[in-house]
Design a binder for these strands. Sequence first.
DNA 1: GTTAGCACTCTTTTGTCGCGAGTGCTAACT
DNA 2: AGTTAGCACTCGCGACAAAAGAGTGCTAAC
Lengths: 343, 343
Amino acid sequence: MELSQRKEKILAAVVEHYIRTGEPVGSKTLLSALDITVSSATIRNEMAELAALGYLEQPHTSAGRIPTNEGYRYYVDNLMGVRPLDESVKRQIEAGVSLKNASPEAILAKASEFLADMTDCAAVSTTPSGENATIKRIEFVPVGTRTGMIVLLTSTGVIKSKVCRSDVDLNSSMIEKFYNIVKASFIGLPLDEIDTATLQTLVASMGADALTMIPFVSAVSELAQEAMRTMVMLGGQSNILRYREDYGTTAYELMDFLRRGEPISQLLANSKADFDVKIGGENKFKQLENSSVIMAHYNIDGDNRGSIGIIGPTRIDYASLIPSVRYLTDLVGELLTQTLNEE
Amino acid sequence: MELSQRKEKILAAVVEHYIRTGEPVGSKTLLSALDITVSSATIRNEMAELAALGYLEQPHTSAGRIPTNEGYRYYVDNLMGVRPLDESVKRQIEAGVSLKNASPEAILAKASEFLADMTDCAAVSTTPSGENATIKRIEFVPVGTRTGMIVLLTSTGVIKSKVCRSDVDLNSSMIEKFYNIVKASFIGLPLDEIDTATLQTLVASMGADALTMIPFVSAVSELAQEAMRTMVMLGGQSNILRYREDYGTTAYELMDFLRRGEPISQLLANSKADFDVKIGGENKFKQLENSSVIMAHYNIDGDNRGSIGIIGPTRIDYASLIPSVRYLTDLVGELLTQTLNEE
DNA sequence: GTTAGCACTCTTTTGTCGCGAGTGCTAACT
DNA sequence: AGTTAGCACTCGCGACAAAAGAGTGCTAAC
């Protein structure tokens, strides 16, 4: 749907004004905000047409207009000025995500927290997916007479560790047996091939040693699961209260939605493009019907591996937050690439 | 301050009714709730006296009475029936905290989450304090040409690990050097003696090796800090919205308060008794002035080491939640004792 | 000490009214 | 044909008033 230039100007002004104030905007207000040489009546006519086209709506007859979800969509796709990020904002973001010597989880947790603070929205991120990774290395470190720590390194550079407990005292022959099993059965194996069936056949093939080895073997499998699973990092839930009126009655549902990592990871994984904006009901979760999501994906070694996003009211400030989310996400991608490749 | 038996009965009835309904309770309502053979006028007289004593108040002249913080306090200290926990609730709690083979952090995180769900409040817990612990063991596991994982075990059984990166390729002589330094300088050292000053003298004494060893040594120190620091686990923040009206305008402040672990750990550490209830402004944090806190402390090897608590509105259901929190906390204590002592 | 009765207070609800904001339509103008 | 001025119309909102309802405090009698 193509709009005349003047309609576009009006639509943009309505969207921007409403985003700023949260109040329905009428023809007169618009007249002074717009450097245009027409009368308010003309603007009214144009607005009526925009409403007929579905881009604007009236909360009630005698109020101004507010954008519909389609209105926001048109604004984001066609009208929004993509001014480059301020240098000072860039530097602020750079400071916010810098974290040396930290795990991917810690980096993303901090990034989410920072992004939430910066945008006054709730922020979410997913840890790198380990779907196509294989097991590169497994180590066992005794830390007590019956306790040891298993360390797993994947081909994508993710390191996971887990304390594990044996039913009998550890001795070097057991540890050697463990390494033999690991070498023969695990190294090089794709993470997603370690399921309970594989484990059972493995345990069955061990014969007499099975009993003592089970805690170790199952710990390795748990680690593989963990390394594969993407975790959801969450920040700034309290910011939901900040825009409480905009969320209406869905505020509680929204907070509850945020707690459950699973749907969020679906939400974030659901888009292929470099970055994505979902406005109101555009995503299939009805808890988000009064929310917009701005998300971007980060790459590790050029490979799309995870996402970072913010969730705010539909009248979120798209124009200035989209570039911020994208820039931050790119930075995090670089940082993670670096972290995971250093050996 | 001693109250007559009848006054106590009335106060208890007011508190319990208000906790249940959230509505101010008047003399007639009370009459039907109370199996007492007096008229509403008598109850009015008694309530007027209770108000004069500071245990009840009226939101406005023609409304019923609601308990003051002092009223809740008297109720909790003297009136509240301490019925033992239902067997079914006990079993529910046992199921909620059972987690085999998990780290203390994971156990407490799950316990907080579960407690929040069970009580419809926000729940918090602190990880065991490592204040008096010493370093028992340190291991180094190479996982790449320049990367290794350092594993630290404390005398209290806490295991922490961290990936650490060298500037040059690792070789066995460096690893041996590392173990020498560790043996000589760290093993047996109390965690709180590892500060920057100690580290600097240590690095200074290493002479030429200092440069290559610094990443390792400082990683050990970071691990020691981590093992010492109590972390705050948080669950059920969304439940704050559930009692939004009760928190009034402090709802946002409350959520924000919960995010910052530090004040919460102060709050929880501030009480010596086995368990503790803070009502409204009784704790020094003004973000909690409309909240009550029910907290209990768990013991590891008989030693008070951490706390678990819930934060709700002042009209929280003390009588049934206090036993739940205590029972759960005891269970967690047992579980942690077991986890940390198994070697 | 207890109770019935009653006047009193204060909130809440409902209804009405007028104001103001903003619209849509029509007729005139360019 | 597009634009504009003018005007009647609609609707939400705040103010105000009246009525209803809940609950109290007090007094006088039991």
